[in-house]
Every structure is written in structure tokens, then in C-alpha cells.
Write a protein that binds this DNA or RNA. Sequence first.
DNA 1: CGGCCATCCTGCACGC
DNA 2: TGCGTGCAGGATGGCC
Length: 266
Amino acid sequence: MPELPEVETVVRGLRNTIVGETISELEVGWDKAFETDDAYDAVVNKTIKTVDRRAKYIIIRLDTGALVVHLRMTGKLTPVYPEKHVTVTLHFTSGKSLYFQDARKFGRMTYTPDPDDMLSHLGPEPLGPDFSVAIFRKMLKSKKRLIKPLLLDQTFLAGLGNIYVDEALFQAGIQPESLSNAIPAKNAAWLHSAIQSILQNSIDAQGTTVLNFSHGDNLTGTYQAALQVYGRSKEPCLICEHPIKKIKLGQRGTHFCPTCQKKFLR
DNA sequence: CGGCCATCCTGCACGC
DNA sequence: TGCGTGCAGGATGGCC
């Protein structure tokens, strides 16, 4: 499923392909994918000005207002007509189209007059300029929550998904059931560093690959091979060879090394 | 407030 | 081979 780096790659592709296009028609193939209420008039005959990313949301800004897209698990945006699972289509006056393809139908497209307001509940961007180690330490101290569900909470920190949280906690030596306010300063700094490097390395890896903008189905090549705990249940830890453990935490599959990652409770 | 649960969906891995 | 079952997951909202 698309994590933040995949969404960033999609956004960069869209900047090259749909900016400047004028929407001539909005076609909804799956009602829940786009609540149309007043959207039709707000969207048709509008021109795409910019494409931005906020966390895992894609913001397609129009003359006024914006289309906000979340790909969730299986969503893709592609200029090539996919034979199946098309939930929304934007047709352009140029004759081109943009297809929202989503096999599992979790993805959503929304029209909003004010995207910044719509997304104002989100926490800081992990790669943003304000997300310093000092700030992060304060954020962790201010909560008394299990670290894994906390990192997945988009109002706390925006853009991390299940896979990258498991990887970041492994790199920082923190057991996922640790309490946020009990994490030592050193581990908090490692976690901060791990979050940023995992995201940045993954973005860089995709940026160096030739990809069309329909990319985003899976973790591709480079980064897939770099996963150290996710999906490696019962396989030996790459550091200590102890079997990787998998538990359920906050409804999510959670992978960690019981010996390399310490459980901080107070 | 924090944690847990169900919900939405369908492809896919697995077992018989 | 083919079928049935269960799992996967991001975000939201309800409940205790």
C-alpha cells in the first residue's frame, strides 16, 4: 500500500502531467469514492493549478478549492485507462483523463473549498522544517500512550503507516508497547532520525527510478529489500538472529525483535 | 483521555 | 483443481 514516499512520488508525477489541465467532466463509478453533493459544479470547468502533498493526502488545487485524494490501500491515479476498478474519472478539455483506480474501494476523493482547513487536524510533517528532535521529545513527553499506536495517530504525527512505524521502532531499539513518555532521550533521538531517514531514503529511491505516475501499488525494489522487521515474522533478526515476533497492537500487525528492542514503561 | 472495537472492501494466501 | 475461510490495512467514530 502507498506509504508517504509513494504518495510523494505520485504527486511529483502529477505535477508534470495534470497541472494546467481543465476539467471537462467528472465521472463517478463508485458513489462512496466521491461524495458529489455540490462537487460537480465546483469542479467542472476548473483548471488545475498545483498538486501538493500533506501527509498521505494528495491536494489537487483548482482555481478555487481543491480535490483532496487519499489512496488508502490500493488506490492509484493513472492517465492510462485501467480495465477494472475505476472509481472516479476526471476528463480534461485536452482529451486526456485521470483515472482513480481502486480495487478495494477504500480510497476517497473529496472536493473542498478549503483544503488547509480540511486537513488542519493533522500533526506535523515528519520531514517538515518544524519537526526537530527537541520538538519530538516534547511531543513524546506530553503523551502517555503506547508508542506504536501513537505514531500511527495522524493527529500526533502525520504520514507514517504501519510498515514504516515498525521499521522505525526497530531502528530506534524501542519495543512497540513502550510508553511514549518513558522513552529515554537517546532512543527518542534515534527514533526521530529513523523516521526521517526511512522516509527520505524511500523517497530518494523512487525518485531515482524511472516511474510513470501510476506508480504506487507496492513498496518497490529498493525499499522492499530494506525491510528489517515488517513481514519477517519468525525469521531471524538481522542483528541478533533471534526470531522476529509478530503481535497485534491497536488492531495492527506489529513486528519487532524481542531482544534488540527494549520495552520502556517508566 | 486512552485504548479497543467495528466498519469499510476485495485480493490473496492458505488449508482441505 | 476448486472451494471456503481468514487476514491485511488507513482512517473514523462509537463505546467504556
